[in-house]
Design a protein around this nucleic acid. Sequence first.
DNA 1: CTATGACCTAGAGCCGGCTCTAGGTCAAGC
DNA 2: GCTTGACCTAGAGCCGGCTCTAGGTCATAG
Lengths: 140, 140
Amino acid sequence: MTRPEVLISISEAAQRSGLSVHALRFYEREGLFPSPVRRDAGGRRLYSEWDLEWLELCTKLRSSGMPLPAIRRYAGLVAAGTGNEAERLDLLRRHQAEITSQIAGLTACLEVISFKVALYEERLAAGGPDPIWVPPEQTS
Amino acid sequence: MTRPEVLISISEAAQRSGLSVHALRFYEREGLFPSPVRRDAGGRRLYSEWDLEWLELCTKLRSSGMPLPAIRRYAGLVAAGTGNEAERLDLLRRHQAEITSQIAGLTACLEVISFKVALYEERLAAGGPDPIWVPPEQTS
DNA sequence: CTATGACCTAGAGCCGGCTCTAGGTCAAGC
DNA sequence: GCTTGACCTAGAGCCGGCTCTAGGTCATAG
């Protein structure tokens, strides 16, 4: 009655997760998996659906700037099983705040850039080669 | 009639730009200034208001992920004077797109995290220690 | 006159996050 | 039985962006 769990090789896991095989092994060494990655008789890694989902979360965390040690902590909490939900929540909330402030920062940068873009567009449209922003002549 | 241009020392420029003195010298070596930073008789750097404005732009570009070589290119265009506005515009537009897609990526991550946060909150509020996401028991 | 402190240069070091290499095992196909 | 190719481990290397060090100059204060 145990349904036939699908297990895939590292190269397949790499394809499906978007990570390189190197990165997958590296993540494992770094303790980023809550439960050890399974192996076949020959010692080769076998990734389950669960592992892939976990990796998906990991890549989201990474791509939003969470450092490996933090992901390791989270993995540790998950590994420890139920009972530490408050801690997990705390970790996630902090990262949530982190992302929010990153977005705010980027939005501010975007505004500045967009302003400059608009300026250049205007000038170019006007055809005039009026200087917009020239370094001051070295009047020494 | 030339108004008395205010020139400040490197440490002051560091404070006002938020960069370290090391970083300021480093940026200069890396060719990130369109016009060379002025020096006093003793060879010490003197930063003008214009330099500070430039640095402000640089930090915006950097903090939104523009790599140093790209900033160097932009500095080169500004240094070359009027006539290359189209190129500058192109460079800025590309970065604009870059930032936009970064924001989109972060927003996607934020959604995932927020979803998980909501899940944990719900569970914790319910008081129940129902497992949310447990690594599968190694049913080997 | 000396010592303090801000500055200078050139170059080495560091950190995070991979990425790659060397050297080896193993199973399948010819 | 040999080659091929996917995998293994441990560890070295790389890249970007600073950051720090060593060793020196110079000006003002005591």
